[in-house]
Computed example of a mutant assay.
Amino acid sequence: MSGVIGKAIDILDALVPQGMEKELSVTEISKLLDMPVQSAHRILNTLTQYGFVTQNSRTKKYKLGLSLMKYGFLMWDSLMFRSVARPYIEELSQKTRETVYLASRENNEGVYIDSIDSPQILKISEPIGLRLPLYIGASNRVILAYLPLKLQDQLLRGVDWAKVPSLKPLTLEYVKADLQRIRAQGYSVTNGEATEGTTGIAAPIFSYERTVVGSINVAGPELRFQADTIEKYSYYVKKYAGLISAELGYSGSSERA
C-alpha cells in the first residue's frame, strides 16, 4: 500500500504547474516516472474519483483537481490564523504572565496550534498538537458553545460520559448548562479537566464568515486564579480574541442556527 501511495504522490508532483497550467497524458506520466502505463492509469482513476486530479474531456490529459485546492486553502487558513494571532497571544502572555494557548477546531476535537509559556517557575505547559474532545477544557468548550445547535447536539450525541478523557467527572447535563453560561458571559472557565490543578479561561475567535474557528486560553495553577484574577483575565481573553477575530475579517455577531 505504501508503494501505491508513493506513486500517487509522484503523479501529483508531476502535475504541479510550473508557472502555467500543466496537463499530462497517461503515457507522458508513465515515461516521466518510469511507471507502467497500467499502474499510472489505475492510480489516476482513483485520484480522479476523489477529485485530486481531473481529466480534460477533449485532450484526455490530466491536471490537478479542486480537492488539492481545498486542502491547500485549509492549510493556508490555518497558517494565516496562527500568524495573525501570534502578536496578540504574546501580548496577552505579557499582561497575565500565565501560559497562553491558541486552539483551533478539527472535527469533534480542539487542537493547540500555538502557545506562549508562562515565565513563572510554577506554570502549565502542554505540547502543541495536544487534542481533546470539544467538551473538555475551556479552550475547547468555548468553541463548542458557539457552534450551531444542531452540530452541538450531533457532537454530544452518543458520548459515553463514564469514559470521557477528563480528569473531572462530566455529564451531558453539566456540559449543556455550561454551554449556556459560556454564551451568556462570552468566555469559558474550567478547573482541572485536562490538567490537574489547572484553571483555564478561554474566549472564542471568529472568522470573516462569522463562524467560530478557534479560541485563546489563559491557563495556570488553580491557586493563582482567584475570583478577581478570573474576572481580570476573562476581560483580557475576550479583548484579544476580539482583536484576532477583527484581523480575520469578523464583524457583527456570531451565527448560530
Score class of each variant (00 low, 15 high):
4 V>T: 15
9 I>L: 13
18 Q>M: 06
27 T>W: 05
16 V>Q: 07
10 D>N: 10
20 M>Y: 04
21 E>C: 00
22 K>T: 08
21 E>Q: 12
23 E>G: 11
36 P>F: 12
10 D>H: 03
9 I>R: 08
36 P>R: 12
32 L>H: 01
37 V>F: 06
24 L>R: 12
24 L>C: 12
16 V>I: 13
28 E>W: 01
32 L>Y: 05
8 A>K: 14
30 S>P: 07
3 G>I: 08
38 Q>R: 11
3 G>K: 08
17 P>L: 04
38 Q>A: 13
26 V>C: 11
18 Q>Y: 08
9 I>A: 13
26 V>S: 10
15 L>K: 00
6 G>Y: 11
19 G>F: 02
13 D>F: 00
39 S>V: 12
38 Q>I: 04
24 L>W: 10
20 M>V: 06
26 V>D: 10
8 A>S: 13
17 P>Y: 02
4 V>Y: 03
21 E>R: 09
29 I>W: 02
15 L>V: 03
3 G>A: 09
21 E>T: 05
27 T>R: 15
3 G>F: 06
12 L>G: 01
5 I>D: 03
34 D>S: 10
19 G>L: 11
23 E>D: 04
16 V>C: 05
6 G>W: 04
9 I>D: 05
12 L>D: 00
28 E>A: 13
12 L>V: 05
4 V>K: 14
21 E>V: 02
33 L>K: 07
36 P>V: 13
8 A>F: 08
33 L>C: 08
34 D>W: 09
8 A>V: 05
29 I>D: 06
36 P>L: 13
10 D>W: 05
25 S>F: 09
34 D>G: 15
4 V>A: 14
31 K>T: 03
13 D>K: 02
14 A>N: 04
10 D>I: 02
15 L>Q: 05
33 L>N: 09
28 E>Y: 01
39 S>H: 07
23 E>M: 13
10 D>C: 03
22 K>L: 13
38 Q>Y: 07
16 V>H: 09
8 A>H: 07
26 V>M: 09
23 E>C: 07
37 V>C: 01
23 E>H: 10
7 K>F: 02
22 K>Q: 12
3 G>S: 10
3 G>H: 11
29 I>T: 07
15 L>I: 02
19 G>A: 06
23 E>K: 12
7 K>M: 06
8 A>R: 14
36 P>K: 14
27 T>Q: 14
6 G>C: 04
11 I>R: 05
28 E>L: 04
10 D>M: 10
37 V>D: 10
37 V>A: 15
39 S>N: 07
16 V>D: 09
7 K>W: 02
25 S>V: 06
9 I>K: 11
18 Q>P: 00
4 V>W: 09
38 Q>T: 14
21 E>W: 00
37 V>W: 01
25 S>N: 14
35 M>L: 15
24 L>T: 04
